[in-house]
Design a protein around this nucleic acid. Structure first.
Lengths: 185, 185
DNA sequence: TAGTGCATGTAAGCAGTTACATGATTGA
DNA sequence: TCAATCATGTAACTGCTTACATGCACTA
């Protein structure tokens, strides 16, 4: 049982889903390819944490819809009470930023503007899902812990904020680069 | 040549260092254990990207001090101009936050307060290094791209801001949990 | 004398990515 | 007709972690 396994358990505990769907749902919060997810789901099913039913579809390929078992729910609750691992961040841009003096201003600026663009898109995507959610939940704001969409809401906020913060840092660096260039002229 | 390899190249390009020292320098920005770094350094040396000199020490074990070669510098500059990979974040807390409804308020609060404590410590550590740096650089603020400590300064700022932002999100969630509890009473 | 820091390395295993493989439907 | 989306899987490989292994100097 690794972190990804618990993540999948957490998703199916809320809504029974296919492997393909789990992959898409998990994407913004834990990057995992289908080649990692499918064998793990099979293992979780064999060990009794999940069960699946084959669902026939006419317009699309058939799918396996996984749902949590009692054993799975117990394991999930135990995991929640365990100490949480520290986050791991691996950002190539940070390593490149350390070598900024080795490159020209043009390449330096490109690095940060590309990242800003990426963050802007991601932030927009998070915001879009949040707006959809607010409309679906009959106007009730999901900021209450008892609201069914509460956890979705705090996760989306997490994603949105992270993107905003990353953008701000890049813009701050770009500002310093511009200021530095102006000084030497 | 993977990202970690370029990260190590970037560090030795600035200051020739031992494997042990590189591990410590890299720690806040790219988590890598010594068992991954030592074989990689050996490979980079064999392939001509780095060279090392054995430095004898009396009070401590001898060390291998690695420095960059011409080939290494060329490779490093090419890497800087290549498109940058998107960051990877794997945070167990986010996956746990999704399952918040499955646990009690006490465990939920513990999750976020522990993270806040961790971030506070990390932020303090980043801030401490920044303050030391400002004193060493004879009062000159390292916010200019030509300053020798400019890249260190922007990386430290990155780390500090990330910790601040993570803390704020946790505090925001804790606030919502408190508010929700008060409402149901 | 037990633990921490400095210093380097290997081996085994788990986690994650890339590539290979198949096949239907829908839209451009 | 070509690409994309849905849907599931395996194989090979790279990246990363944990554990094993050694050894000296300093400090509590």
């Amino acid at each position: 049982m690794n972190t990804l396994a618990y993540g999948l358990l957490g998703l199916v505990a809320r809504t029974p889903s296919s492997g393909y769907d789990l992959m898409l749902q998990l994407q913004p919060y834990w990057q995992a390819k289908h080649s990692q997810i499918y064998p793990l789901l099979a293992k979780l099913e064999q060990e009794g944490y999940m069960q699946f039913t084959r669902v026939h579809q006419t317009d699309r390929p058939d799918k396996k819809v996984y749902s949590i078992t009692e054993k799975g729910e117990i394991a999930l609750k135990l995991w929640l009470a365990e100490p949480t691992a520290e986050p791991v961040i691996r950002d190539e841009l940070v390593l490149k930023a350390y070598c900024l003096q080795l490159t020209d201003e043009k390449a330096a600026r490109a690095m940060f503007t590309e990242r800003i663009e990426h963050c802007r898109e991601q932030a927009e995507s998070f915001m879009h899902i949040m707006q959809e959610m607010e409309q679906q939940t009959d106007g009730k704001h999901p900021d209450h812990p008892d609201h069914s969409a509460f956890s979705d809401y705090i996760l989306l906020t997490w994603g949105y904020r992270r993107m905003q913060e990353d953008m701000k840092w890049c813009e701050w660096v770009l500002g310093l680069l511009e200021k530095g260039k102006a000084d030497t002229e």
